[in-house]
Amino acid sequence: MKTTKNFKTGWLRATCASAAMAYALTAVPAIAEDFDLDALIAAAKAEDGITIYSSTSKIKKAAAGFSEKYGIEAIGTKAKGPAQIELVVRESQAGNVVGDVIIAADAAAASALLLAEGMVTSWTPPDMADTIGELSSDPLVVWRDPALWTYNNENGGECPVSNIWEVTEDEWNRRIALEDPLNKPSFSDWFNQMETHFDDEMADAYKEHFGKVLDRGEQSATATWVQRLAANAPLLTDSSSGAAEAIGTRGQDKPFFGLVASAKYRDVSPEGLAMGLCKDMKPSIGFAVPGYGLIATGSDSPNAAKLFLHYMMTEEGVLPMTQDGKMSGNSAVPPHPDEVSGVVTYADRLTPHIAATGSDDFDKRQDWQDLWRIHYKR
């Protein structure tokens, strides 16, 4: 796995970086001159069809579009993150590959269990190298699924929270809504990514809000924030839909505030939910969960699998997903015109996921979950 050395994320000054790189946009070097898309298409058509595992049911639409375009049978199958990992592991061990392409929703587990063991490989379309940035190329990021700090904007006005440390204070006691970190691994991974790469930014935000320096002698700024948030008795939901309803339901005197998947903004309407993106929140407006595009080792249709990933890195292929606020790993793909949250405009203010430390995220999940479990108050 390639180590990311330089990048820039707008609000972030990454501790592992020495120079700036535009988040998810900077080009990786050199297009492969010998890549021939027509030759790939011909090779793909000579193979059997493919099956794709993805956490979104919209993969069926994408698969149907691919089949119509290329005349290659493609079956899209919805499988949530843990189920994807289990399927790939079992199929690899049995020597019976069914899922040719996996758009992995659990990035850390994919890094630690699939890529590290050689059960899958990553392939980045060479003819798109100038628009697929370094943070999206190894492994290939087909899309990013944002989780956004969100407020109830029924009565207009700006976001009531400007600093991430505010959610740990009494004003927001029992008024923060988010998915349960014990059931949602991406939250534990986010905690670890912040501590590993962006703890200085968390400490800077603490100083800006409280007017004093945080003592990080015993634990990181991120760990202190997680501990305090858990102790502030947030409302924990079993889905992002539950958090969105808690925040966006109209008629609340003191509405909830919290983290919501960008896809839930499709429920925003004059008769539906009232939600707005906290676009100026420091040090970030949320985080982005990558969907890795991977090819199963031992697939009978490796060229068709590559062609499908190539298709998904185009506006046409990823269109069903960008409507829900997912952001393509290809910077040449524009935001969907009907996407409601507006997150793409502020994408450089999301905490990025650094693939180089994905296995570490997986290894430390239990530690973060234990910290949350110990300090959470109902």
Rank of each mutant, 00 (worst) to 15 (best):
V226N: 02
V226L: 11
L229S: 04
R228G: 04
T237S: 09
A231P: 02
G251M: 02
E218H: 12
A243I: 02
F257S: 07
G242V: 07
V213Y: 09
A223S: 11
G242T: 06
S240A: 11
D215N: 15
E245F: 03
I247N: 00
A230H: 05
E218R: 12
G251Q: 06
P234D: 07
V226D: 01
G248I: 01
G248N: 05
S241D: 11
V226M: 12
G217L: 10
A221R: 01
S240F: 11
A230N: 09
A223K: 14
V213L: 14
L214R: 08
E245D: 08
A230I: 11
P234G: 10
G251K: 07
F257C: 06
L235E: 12
G258A: 14
G248L: 06
L236Y: 03
L235K: 14
F256M: 13
N232I: 06
R250W: 06
N232A: 10
P234E: 11
A231T: 04
L229P: 00
R216V: 14
T249E: 04
Q227C: 05
R216Y: 02
F257N: 08
T224M: 11
T224A: 15
Q227R: 15
K254S: 11
V213P: 00
E218A: 14
A244T: 02
T249H: 01
F257I: 09
D215P: 01
A223H: 05
D253F: 06
F257A: 09
G251F: 08
A243L: 04
R250S: 06
D238N: 14
L235N: 08
T249K: 14
F256A: 14
A233M: 05
D253M: 05
S241V: 06
E218S: 15
A230R: 08
I247A: 00
G248S: 08
G258S: 12
G217Y: 14
A231C: 05
V213M: 13
D238T: 10
I247C: 00
Q227S: 15
A233E: 09
A230F: 10
A233I: 09
L235T: 08
G248M: 09
A223Q: 15
A246Y: 00
F256H: 14
D215S: 14
I247K: 02
N232D: 07
R250L: 05
D238Y: 09
V260Y: 12
A221I: 02
A230V: 08
A246K: 10
A243F: 03
F256T: 02
G258K: 12
Q252C: 01
L259S: 10
Q219G: 00
E218T: 13
V260P: 07
N232T: 06
S239L: 05
V213D: 15
T237V: 06
F256R: 05
G248A: 07
D215A: 09
Q219Y: 11
R216P: 00
T224Y: 02
G242A: 07
G248V: 04
D253T: 12
R228S: 12
L259E: 06
D215L: 11
A244W: 01
P234Y: 13
Q219T: 05
D238P: 00
L214H: 11
G258H: 12
D215V: 07
A246I: 00
L229G: 04
Q252D: 01
A233H: 07
L229W: 02
V226A: 08
T249Q: 09
V213T: 15
S241Q: 10
